[in-house]
Computed example of a mutant assay.
Amino acid sequence: MKPSKPYQVFRTSALVVVVFALMAPLLWMIAASFKTNVDIYDTAKAFVFSPSLKNYETVLQQANYLQFIGNSLWVAFGATMLSLLLGVPAAYSMSRFAMKKSALVVLMARVIPGVSLLVPWYYVFSNLKMVGGFTVLILSHMFVSLPLIVYIMMGYFDGLPTELEEAALVDGLTHIGAFRRITLPLSVPGVATAGILSFIFSWNNFMFALVLSGADTKTLPVAIFDFVGYASIDWGGLMAAATVVTLPIMLIALFVQKYVVSGLTAGATKG
């Protein structure tokens, strides 16, 4: 049945309001990144102003943000790859062999706030002389990334038919062989979803990097604080730095959204 006209008007209006509420802060941030601090405080220049690239020059050249970008990429990529390497086989085992107790542990790890472990982590890793290195950052990010990947992939594997694997076992393959040759190629959308969400978490993570990183391993979210001083805030530089952090993730999400949607909804209709 075709929706009534009042309903269509209401739906369109609601979508416009939601999109505007979500996009307005982002658009303001991008616009402010092209303004001077004086223009940012001037309400008369909220929409009409003379754009300047000075803030981006400060961020990319003077503030050494290229190194921070490299640090963020290294930590996010390392945590994601290691989490996928461990999490995908673990999720397959829990899904296919009904390891309910292990799945409960994973669920508990998803529920526990990572910030609650910062103090014991810092104590342990400082005694091991690891604070300030990339290894401790990658391991701390894996605490959240690994349960996230296992949680997503368990639902995806639950939604895959078992008949192909059973046929492979009849033909002489082991469970590992069936997983590697049959199940894993079929689960590419789920792996892509889990990897993308894990990468986004690591890229955006602030608290772990703030406590556990060093001067040479500082990531982008922590480096943004360089524009926040005791007596004043460089709003133009801060907005440019925030734009540098945000836009790569937005572009990634834009191009891979179909994988994220298919991966998150996999298994929802099983049974």
Score class of each variant (00 low, 15 high):
Y65Q: 09
K5Q: 13
L173C: 13
A98T: 13
D234V: 10
A103V: 05
W74N: 07
L117Q: 06
A24C: 11
L210D: 01
S262D: 14
P120M: 02
L60Q: 01
V131T: 11
A103S: 11
G133S: 15
T183F: 06
F68P: 05
G236Q: 10
I200H: 07
A21L: 09
K100I: 07
A90C: 05
I200N: 07
A21G: 09
G114D: 08
T265P: 14
T162V: 04
G132I: 07
D39F: 03
S262E: 15
M142C: 00
F199T: 04
K129E: 15
P147A: 05
A63R: 05
M250Y: 07
P3G: 03
S83V: 00
L22W: 10
A79S: 11
R110G: 15
V16D: 01
G177L: 14
F47A: 01
L53A: 07
A103L: 12
W28I: 15
M81Y: 05
Y7K: 10
M108A: 15
P185G: 02
A168K: 00
G190F: 00
L164E: 15
A241P: 07
Y156M: 03
K5T: 13
I182V: 15
Q67L: 14
S102A: 14
I149S: 02
R96Y: 01
L104A: 14
F134I: 01
N127R: 15
T12F: 11
F47P: 02
L26C: 14
F10Y: 01
T246R: 08
M108E: 10
S202W: 07
Q62G: 05
F201S: 08
F47L: 04
P147M: 03
F206L: 13
A31C: 11
F206D: 13
A90D: 03
L220E: 12
I196H: 07
V115F: 10
K5F: 14
K270R: 12
S93K: 13
A31E: 11
Y92I: 02
S102D: 13
G159F: 00
L173S: 12
F206P: 13
F157E: 00
T219K: 01
A32D: 15
L117S: 09
I249M: 13
S140K: 03
P189Y: 00
W74P: 02
L264H: 07
T217H: 00
T162S: 04
V228A: 07
L85W: 01
M94W: 08
N37W: 04
F49G: 10
V48A: 06
N127T: 13
V115W: 04
K100D: 15
I224G: 12
A44W: 02
A24N: 05
K35W: 09
Y56F: 07
G237C: 01
L186R: 02
L186D: 04
L128Y: 07
V106P: 11
G172A: 05
A268P: 11
Y92L: 05
D158K: 08
F206I: 11
A242G: 12
M23V: 06
S187W: 04
M1P: 09
S50K: 14
N64M: 06
M29E: 12
A215R: 09
V106Y: 04
V17P: 10
